[in-house]
Design a protein around this nucleic acid. Structure first.
Length: 671
DNA sequence: GAGTTGCTTCTTTTT
DNA sequence: GAAGCAACTC
C-alpha cells in the first residue's frame, strides 16, 4: 500500500479521491486543497491496481505540473510515478505531434514558434501584403489569428480580406518552415485525433483515467482534445476547477466548459469543496463579498474555521514610489532581521502588470532585501540565449528559415540583408528553404564575388556540422560549443558588450545553456536536443528553478500567482485603469478583472494589505489615479482603510524601535 | 554590409 | 521609459 493518507482528507475530498469511475466534476474553491485531492486520487487509483501509465493528468501551467509531479512522487513509488503522464496541454500535444506529425504533412522535427517568432512572421507577411487602404496592425492580426485558432479554425473563412489573406499566408508559411506556433500545437493535435483514427485509438486506449486541473481555463480546443482522448462511453474523466478563478478569458478560455460540464460528459459525480484551509475567516469574507458582484457564477460558499486574524487593510499612498517604500518598510520590520524574524519567503507583492515590478525591485534592491520576480521576461528574452536557441533550432530543423536568419546575422558573416532578401524571394518562388537556396547558388543572382564566397564558406561549414549532428551518439552540446567558438560568435558577443562584466555575464549564460543542454541529453537520451528545445520554448523558465530556490520576497503578477499562497500579501496598484485594466473596461471584461482581484485576495493566509496611489508614473510621466471601484465592494466588516502616511506617522512600538535601532547599528557596521 | 544614432510608438494578463 | 525602427555614417 502506498504512503498516501486518505484519512487526512475531509469527507468531500475523500469522496473525490476515491470515486471509482465515470465522469466527475470537482468544484474546488480557492485553498480547498484541490491539488491534494488530485494527488490523493492518483495514489488511490494506483493502489486499486490501475496501471500508472494509463493515468493522464493535465495541468495548465508548468509550475502546476511540476508541483503535482513532486507531490505524486512523494505518494506513490518512484517507478510508478515515472509512468504517470503529468504534463501541460501544450507539452502533451507536442508529444503526440512529434510522433504523428507525418500524418498531418509536417516533419517530426518541426520547430515550435514562440510569441516572438510568431510576431516576426506576421510582420513579415503584413509587410509583403502591404495594403495601403487598410494597413494591418500586426499585433491585432496576431491576436485575431490566435483567437480563431483557439476556436478550432485552421484557416480563414475568406481570403478576400487583408486579414484573411494574412491568416492563410501565415499558416502556409508555417507549414513550409516546418513550424507550429503555440496555438497550432493544440489545433494540430486536435486535428490529428479527430481525423486519424489510428492515432486516436492508440492514445485513447493508453489513457484510461484522465484528470484536468484548472478546467475553467480550458478553451474550446482543449475541451475538444480532452473529449477526443476520453472517448464516448462514460469515460473516466475527472476535472477540477473554480469558475470564480477563471482569468484567462482573453486567451479563449471558456468557463462554460466547467459550468456546462454535464453537457459534454453526462451524469457526472459532482463534488463541491468549500472548506478553505488557507486563509483567515476575515480574508475569506472580504473575498466572498467581492465575488458576489459577479453575475455568471455557479455559486459557492467558502468558509474557514480560522476565526482569528488581522483586518484587511486598504491603504492610500501618495505615489507609486511611496507605495513601494512603505511596503519595503513593512517587510523589513517583519523580516528575518527583525524581532518577528520571519523568512523573506513569507511575503509577496502582487500586481496587475509586469511593468509594475520595477518600482519594487528598485526599492528592495536599495535596501538589500532579497526578492525574486516570477514570470516576466527573463532568461529566454536575452539576446545571447535567443541566439544559441536559434543555432540549435536551425541545426535541428533545416527548414526553419527564421532560426537560420538569426544565425546568419550573429556574428555577421558578410551575408547582408540585401542578399538574404534575394535568397528569401528565391526560396518562395522555388518552394525551397533558405538553406537549400544558399546551398545551391544557381538560384541566387548574387552580384559580388565577395558575397558568393561568404555564402560558400558558411554553407560548407554548416554542412559539416549538420553531418556531425546526424552521426549517432554525437554530443550536441559539445558540437554547438565548438561551432560557436569557430564561427567567432563569442568574439562578436564580446564586442557588442559595453563592459567586461556584461560580456562575462552573457558568456556565462551561453555556457549555462550549453551545460543544461548537455545535462538534459544525458538524462533524456531519447528526447535529446529536440526535447530540450521544446522544454525551453514551452516553459520559458529555465531560470525559474534557480529562482525558486532563492530565498526572497516574491514579486508576481496576479495571473501568475494563481495556485500559490503566502502568509503576508500586499496587493498593489488597486486603481481604476490598472486593476480593472483600462483595456478590459473597453472590452467589457470587468468581471474577469474582479475575479483577478479575487484570486489575489485568496492568496493571503494571514494578512492582506491592498494599496493604491494618488498619482503614478505611467508612460514615463506622472498621471493621477482614482481608486479602483472594486475597493468600494470590499468595504465592510473586517476592512480597515487608511493611508500610508498615517501609519508611518504612528509612533513605533517598543519592539519596532528596537528593531530599527538594531538595523541602524548594523548599517553603521557596514551590513 | 555593418553599426550607430535619434526618432517613434505604445504596454495586460501566458502556454 | 524601453524597445523597435528608420535613416544616417563609416
Amino acid at each position: 500500500m502506498s504512503g498516501f493518507r486518505l484519512f487526512d482528507l475531509n469527507p468531500e475530498q475523500f469522496r473525490a479521491a476515491t470515486h471509482p469511475d465515470g465522469p466527475m466534476l470537482i468544484l474546488a474553491g480557492a485553498g480547498t486543497g484541490k491539488t491534494r485531492v488530485l494527488t490523493a486520487r492518483i495514489a488511490w487509483l494506483v493502489s486499486q491496481g490501475v496501471e500508472p501509465s494509463s493515468i493522464l493528468a493535465v495541468t495548465f501551467t508548468n509550475k502546476a505540473a511540476k508541483e503535482m509531479r513532486e507531490r505524486v512522487a512523494a505518494t506513490v513509488n518512484s517507478e510508478q510515478a515515472k509512468q504517470i503522464t503529468l504534463s501541460t496541454f501544450h507539452a502533451l500535444c507536442v508529444r503526440l505531434l512529434r510522433k504523428h506529425a507525418h500524418l498531418l504533412g509536417y516533419k517530426e522535427n518541426f520547430s515550435i514558434f514562440d510569441e516572438g517568432d510568431q510576431m516576426g512572421l506576421v510582420k513579415k507577411i503584413a509587410a509583403r501584403i502591404h495594403d495601403k487602404q487598410d494597413p494591418i496592425d500586426p499585433n491585432l492580426a496576431r491576436n485575431i489569428i490566435s483567437k480563431a485558432k483557439n476556436l478550432g479554425m485552421s484557416e480563414p473563412e475568406t481570403t478576400d480580406t487583408a486579414l484573411g489573406s494574412l491568416f492563410s499566408k501565415y499558416q502556409n508559411e508555417l507549414r513550409t518552415l516546418n513550424a507550429m506556433d503555440f496555438d497550432d500545437l493544440l489545433l494540430q493535435a486536435r486535428t490529428l485525433l479527430r481525423d486519424h483514427p489510428e492515432a486516436r485509438d492508440e492514445w485513447r486506449s493508453r489513457y484510461r483515467h484522465i484528470m484536468v486541473d484548472e478546467f475553467q481555463d480550458t478553451n474550446k480546443l482543449q475541451l475538444e482534445l480532452v473529449s477526443l482522448l476520453a472517448g464516448e462511453e462514460r469515460p473516466n474523466i475527472c476535472v477540477v476547477g473554480d469558475d470564480d478563478q477563471s482569468i484567462y478569458g482573453w486567451r479563449g478560455a471558456e468557463s462554460a466548459n466547467l459550468l456546462e460540464f454535464e453537457r459534454h460528459f453526462p451524469d457526472p459525480e459532482v463534488i463541491k469543496l468549500e472548506q478553505n484551509y488557507r486563509s483567515t475567516d476575515i480574508i475569506l469574507s472580504v473575498a466572498n463579498r467581492l465575488i458576489r458582484n459577479n453575475s455568471k457564477r455557479r455559486g459557492k460558499n467558502l468558509w474557514s474555521d480560522r476565526k482569528e486574524g488581522d483586518p484587511v487593510r486598504i491603504l492610500l499612498a501618495s505615489d507609486d514610489k511611496a507605495e513601494a517604500e512603505f511596503i519595503a518598510d513593512e517587510i523589513q520590520a517583519a523580516g528575518p532581521q527583525s524581532a518577528k524574524a520571519r523568512p523573506w519567503t513569507d511575503f509577496a507583492i502582487l500586481y496587475r502588470m509586469n511593468a509594475q515590478s520595477r518600482q519594487f525591485e528598485e526599492v528592495l534592491r536599495e535596501r538589500r532585501i532579497p526578492y525574486r520576480v516570477v514570470g516576466g521576461k527573463s532568461f529566454f528574452d536575452r539576446r545571447e540565449v535567443k541566439d544559441v536557441v536559434a543555432y540549435l533550432g536551425a541545426l535541428l530543423n533545416p527548414d526553419d528559415d527564421n532560426a537560420l536568419l538569426r544565425v546568419l546575422a550573429n556574428p555577421p558573416r558578410g551575408i547582408g540583408s540585401a542578399t538574404l532578401q534575394l535568397a528569401t524571394e528565391a526560396g518562395a518562388k522555388n518552394r525551397k528553404s533558405l538553406l537549400a537556396i544558399l546551398n545551391d547558388p544557381e538560384h541566387l543572382a548574387v552580384s559580388s564575388s565577395r558575397t558568393r564566397i561568404a555564402i560558400q564558406r558558411f554553407t560548407e561549414d554548416w554542412g559539416t556540422y549538420r553531418i556531425q549532428l546526424q552521426t549517432p551518439g554525437t554530443d550536441i552540446s559539445g558540437l554547438l560549443r565548438g561551432l560557436l567558438e569557430e564561427c567567432g560568435y563569442y568574439e562578436d558577443l564580446k564586442k557588442s558588450c559595453k563592459t567586461e562584466a556584461e560580456s562575462d555575464g552573457r558568456q556565462e549564460n551561453v555556457h549555462e545553456l550549453l551545460n543544461a543542454l548537455a545535462g538534459y541529453c544525458q538524462r533524456h537520451p531519447r528526447e535529446g536536443a529536440r526535447g530540450f528545445l521544446d522544454g525551453l520554448t514551452l516553459e520559458q523558465e529555465r531560470e525559474e528553478e534557480k529562482a525558486e530556490e532563492r530565498e526572497g520576497v516574491t514579486l508576481i503578477t496576479l495571473h501568475a500567482a494563481k495556485g500559490l499562497e503566502f502568509p503576508d500579501v500586499w496587493l498593489v496598484g488597486a486603481e481604476n485603469g490598472v486593476l480593472p485594466h483600462e483595456r478590459s473596461k473597453a472590452e467589457g471584461t470587468v468581471e474577469e478583472e474582479r475575479r483577478l482581484l479575487y484570486v489575489g485576495i485568496t492568496r493571503a493566509r494571514h494578512r492582506l494589505t491592498i494599496t493604491h496611489c494618488s498619482t503614478r508614473r505611467k508612460f514615463g510621466s506622472v498621471s493621477s489615479c482614482i481608486p479602483s471601484p472594486f475597493l468600494l465592494e470590499l468595504q465592510g466588516e473586517g476592512v480597515e482603510t487608511g493611508s500610508v502616511e498615517e501609519i508611518l506617522s504612528q509612533p513605533l512600538s517598543e519592539e519596532e524601535s528596537e528593531d530599527a535601532f538594531a538595523r541602524m547599528k548594523a548599517m553603521l557596521r557596514g551590513e
